[in-house]
Design a binder for these strands. Structure first.
Lengths: 137, 137
DNA sequence: ATAATCCCTCCAGTGACTAGAGGTTCAAGA
DNA sequence: TCTTGAACCTCTAGTCACTGGAGGGATTAT
């Protein structure tokens, strides 16, 4: 049995975050000490590692809750997990595209900043006048 | 003079958001009607367009406040605006890199999902076992 | 005059934490 | 066994950029 501090060290998840995940219904300690402190099993640590990993990959708490539920039915078909991950991948790709468009716009704005005063600074002008933009956004 | 609803239509910024920006100190209406309703000038509308545009490009409220302050000193050197925009561009690029790494990882996880049951589903296994990952994250 | 629409303020909720106050428990050393 | 200090507990509030709703007043068109 591990204290919350030990679990935090093992998983890299901060102590208040572990408590937050508990409140969100992702994990709860297997036991409590006589003095009401959380005590985690090895299984709990594994589960928190799973959560951490999924968060690192950008899965939302709700999606993680679903993935945990799925993992509790090892004989169920895995379409569910696959669908969640694929949907997430699509979101990530969309986000990348969006950011690339921003990048291009910002690049253009920054590189054009030829002026020496704010008055003729392209950065300020481009922000004031949408007409200077190449794409809609 | 425009009502908040008209301004909203002209700029595409939602009414509660305009009020929120006011609370944040980005704009305030030039006047109030006798009945205490907000009345905006043409200049106010331009300013809100500036804000909207900057937000679309991902600038934070605080950065926008700085840009507005700069735009009020047209004779000042424009290094400030340039620096803010360049820093933002760097952030955007970093975010893109990060998301690309996620994309690669998720691609790998999803494409490997060969199993039919959760038990041997790569998605679940990859999340449980960090060792299956290619990169640190 | 009245109805419909708009506007006002204030409060609460979102997501995923993070930080602090004020108090209790635990583990290790004397 | 006692003490000390670190770690723990709960509860509340703050972050960012909004969004939505309640309950009531203002404006506008007919």
């Amino acid at each position: 049995m591990f204290s919350i501090g030990e679990v935090s060290k093992r998983t890299g998840v901060k102590v208040p975050t572990i408590r937050y995940y508990e409140e969100m219904g992702l994990i709860s300690p297997s036991e409590r000490s006589d003095g009401n402190q959380r005590r985690y099993s090895r299984g709990d640590v594994e589960r928190l590692t799973f959560i951490r990993h999924a968060r690192d990959l950008g899965f939302e708490i709700d999606r993680i809750r679903e993935l945990i539920a799925l993992s509790h039915h090892p004989q169920a078909p895995c379409d569910g997990a696959d669908r969640i991950a694929s949907a997430h991948l699509a979101e990530v790709r969309q986000k990348i595209d969006q950011l690339k468009r921003l990048e291009a716009e910002l690049e253009r704005i920054v590189s054009h900043c030829g002026g020496h005063t704010v008055e003729d600074c392209y950065v300020i002008r481009a922000l004031s006048d949408h007409g200077l933009c190449e794409h809609e956004h």
